[in-house]
Each structure stands twice: as structure tokens, then as C-alpha cells.
Amino acid sequence: MDSSSRAATHRGRGGITRSRAARLEELQKYLFILPALALFATFVLLPLGSALYFSFTTWDGLRTPEWVGTRNYARAFADTIHVRSYVNVGVYILGTLVVEVAFGLLMAVLLASDRLGFAFMRGLFFSPMVLSMVAAGILWKYVYDYRTGLLNEALRAGGLGDFAHPWLSDPGTAMAGVIVVSGWKYAGFFMIIFLAALRRIPTSLYEAAMLDGATALQRLWHVTLPLLRETTIIAVLLCVTGGFAAFDLFFTMTNGGPFNATEIPTTWIVKQAFDRHNMGYGAALTVIMTVVVGVVSLAYLLATRRRHAVEY
């Protein structure tokens, strides 16, 4: 035991009374982490373990769970809507990489100025971040409304009335509609992240590039972007893992519809578990999601690290 061996060293120095105090203090240290660990074990680890157990059972939430082996997993891979939900979330993630990360980077470059008003514009651009996804989703449902929506009305006012469209009720455009709102909400976050990285780049590099006659665009391409590599890796990772965890916006705006065009794993899990009371099947879907998120993040980190190693 660590505590006793530590106490022994104290005994050597200070005698019996000192050793008891030391042992007591050794125990005290665990009191610092006890509340955190107790909560974490009860409300994070324990449910995680039970999810794994439930995934091998069939259970309606009322009777006792019945062990069915891997049947839920076989069912998950045959469930076309479930498989499609991963295609959908993949499309969503690719879309958000453009409208959140790439657009955020663009805005960081555009708004990184000390001129009058730019600090205010940065603040305004970031502001949707503090709103709830629910508020954003409800507001944008009205923006997209076919008859009275801001978007279609603006198109009509601009003479583009032919493009007016029931954005969220058309399976062909619903996902794009959700992706745009995601960008509206989160581009400001990625702008700030890239802005912080831009500020860390020493101005001497730009001065050197200018002396070499590099144009603004060349400076952006050859100086700024390579130095934003590390930040971009983190931003992409955050965007991808955040994409898998998406739920609020989809639930608020489309809840998977129309015709499962925006069904993603989380909305499908909630439907299976809380509308259809397939708790065992729902649990299996959550386990699959955990594995997918883990594997994708890990693979991404390894891939970027390897490329990194080759480059230098």
C-alpha cells in the first residue's frame, strides 16, 4: 500500500504520531476526488455499462430484459433506415465542414482587422453561439417557410421568385436547410479559433514574404494556411465529433423527415427507444454509435499525425 509505505518514511523521520497524521492525510487526498468520481461512476460509467448489457437484450422498459445475444446488432445492420442515418450524418458532417470550418476560416481572415467596427462585427458574427439550438431551429423553420418565410420572400423581392421553395418539406433540400442553420450557429465559433491562431503568426513572416514580392493571395496560401494546420486539425475533429452528436437542430426542425431524408443516428435512436419502446435495440444503436465515433476520431488523429511525420 502506498499510504503505509509513505507513512513508514514519515515514521523514520518523525515517529509514531507523525505517521498517523500522515496516514490520515493520505486518506484525505481521496476525499478531494470522491464527489467527482461518485457522480461520474453513477451517471456516466454505470449507464454506459448498462447500455452495453441492454444491447444484448430485448426490452420494452417494463418487463425484465430478455437476453437475445447479438440479434439487435444483426437487426441494426439490416435496418435500412439505420444504415441510411449514417449516410445522412456523413453528408451533414461534410456540409458542416464547409459552412462551419471553411466558412469560419474565411470569416476569420475577413474580419481579422483592427479597423473601426470590425470588433463589433466579430461579436455579432459569434452571437448565434450563445443561443439554444431550439431557438435557432424554430427561428429558421420560419425563415424557410414556403409562404411567409424570410428566404422565399427575399428571393421574390429580388426577382428570383422561381427559386422559392418549400425547403424543409422537400427531401431533396431538407438536409441542406439544416446544414445552413448549423453553419449560422457555429461558424462564429470556428472563426474565433482561427482568429486566435492567426494572431499567433509573427508579422515578420508576412514582411519577409512581401519583400519577396508575394501578393496578398500568395501570402494567404503560402504563409497563413500552412501555419494554421494544427488548428485546422483540431477544428475538423471538433466538427466531426460534434456532427455525430447532433440532435437538437434535427429534432427541432425536421425530426428526421421528410421520408427519413434527415434521419441521423441520434434521432433514430430516440425514436426506437422512446416512441417504439425498443430499449434493447436502441441501446445496441447507441453502442454502435459510440464505436463509430471512437474509431473515426482515432483514425483521423492517426492519419493526420502520420502525414505530419512525413512532412517534416
Partner: peptide, 12 residues
């Protein structure tokens, strides 16, 4: 993501 435990957490 917190979604992975909603089912057991609900019953807990």
C-alpha cells in the same frame, strides 16, 4: 456524446 447513455440513464 451524452446521447449514448440516454436509455439506461432514463431507467436509472
Amino acid at each position: 456524446p451524452a446521447q449514448v447513455v440516454i436509455i439506461p440513464l432514463f431507467f436509472l
